[in-house]
């Protein structure tokens, strides 16, 4: 165990209630509780948060940036999803 690096955790912080959690950085910790404590000491020394999530980095499933063009392509050709696609006739209001 001595030579093994502790697992990496990603840290997400809610700055205040009403806002969503946001990625702040990462830390190494031996277990979940230590990860929370270390995240508090590292990322919220100046009241930056009211809630912290930590999750092992290895548990995150991420899209591949190299494939992002193809991955997000389905959204590209549906311009009719945007309100600006529709031209409203003159004289129509509140729409």
């Amino acid at each position: 165990m001595t030579n093994k690096e502790w697992p990496l955790y990603e840290v997400f912080i809610r700055a205040k209630s009403g806002l969503s959690h946001r990625h702040a950085g990462s830390i190494h910790a031996a277990d979940d509780q230590m990860a929370l404590d270390a995240a508090r000491d590292t990322y919220t020394r100046r009241n930056e948060g009211v809630s912290i999530w930590v999750i092992r980095s290895s548990q995150i499933v991420a899209s591949d940036p190299a494939e992002s063009a193809a991955f997000f392509e389905p959204a590209e050709d549906k311009i009719y999803r945007h309100p600006t696609f529709y031209e409203m006739p003159d004289g129509v209001e509140n729409l």
Partner: peptide
Amino acid sequence: REAAGAYAEKR
């Protein structure tokens, strides 16, 4: 570090 690691493994 060793103790924290051992504790995590035990838990």
